[in-house]
Simulated assay, not measured.
Amino acid sequence: MKKLALTLITASLVVSSPSYALFGLGDKDSDTVTSLAGQLQSSSELVNSLKDQLGVSTEQAAGGAGALLAMASSQLSGASGEELSGLSSNLSGLLETAKSTGTSLDSMAAVKTAFEKLGLDSSMVEQYVPIVLDYLGDEGASSGLLSSLTSLWK
């Protein structure tokens, strides 16, 4: 169940449609969802940046970024939370799906576990953070949000 939820979060990184569209598939075959995610993620600037800089697969890049952003979404509230979800349609799709799955990505320990389930060493989180922060900065994130995320993702 957790793998399916993580796969759905991964797929939504690049899907700007509402989260119910993904859940409406009704497909319990995670290979199909993973295949769809792989096709859609190829155009994502963040995913491509992670792949190029870290040498990870598309699924690992999207899943790792998704885990970090889902954790941030669960921890940030008020203006920072709204700013994060409003940065781009790609992120808002991911964040809405992350919220609706009920997956508990509410701590760095949970993020590290998600990385391990993606076949990544948990220490890779430290390599993802600056790339995701750079991406968010390029998307127009305020210095206050970037500072909050830096503290959150330590």
Rank of each mutant, 00 (worst) to 15 (best):
V47C: 03
D29Y: 10
E45S: 10
L22R: 15
G38F: 06
S44G: 13
L46D: 06
S35H: 10
A21V: 15
L46E: 02
S17F: 08
Y20C: 06
S17N: 10
S43H: 07
D29P: 00
A21M: 14
G24F: 09
L13Y: 06
T32L: 12
S43Q: 07
A21W: 12
Q41R: 01
A11Y: 14
S16F: 06
Q39D: 06
F23C: 08
D29C: 00
G24E: 12
T32H: 10
A37Y: 06
S42H: 01
T10Y: 03
D27Y: 04
A37Q: 08
T32Y: 08
Q41A: 05
L40C: 00
L46W: 08
Q41W: 00
Q41H: 01
D27S: 13
G24W: 10
S17P: 02
L13K: 04
L46G: 07
G26W: 11
E45D: 11
L22G: 04
S19Q: 09
A11V: 02
S35D: 07
T10I: 01
L36I: 02
P18W: 03
D31K: 14
A37F: 05
L40Y: 01
Y20W: 15
G38H: 05
E45T: 11
S35N: 02
D27M: 09
Q39P: 00
V15Q: 11
G24N: 15
A21E: 12
D31F: 12
S17E: 14
S42C: 03
S43Y: 05
V33F: 01
S16N: 07
L40Q: 05
L46S: 08
D29T: 04
S12H: 13
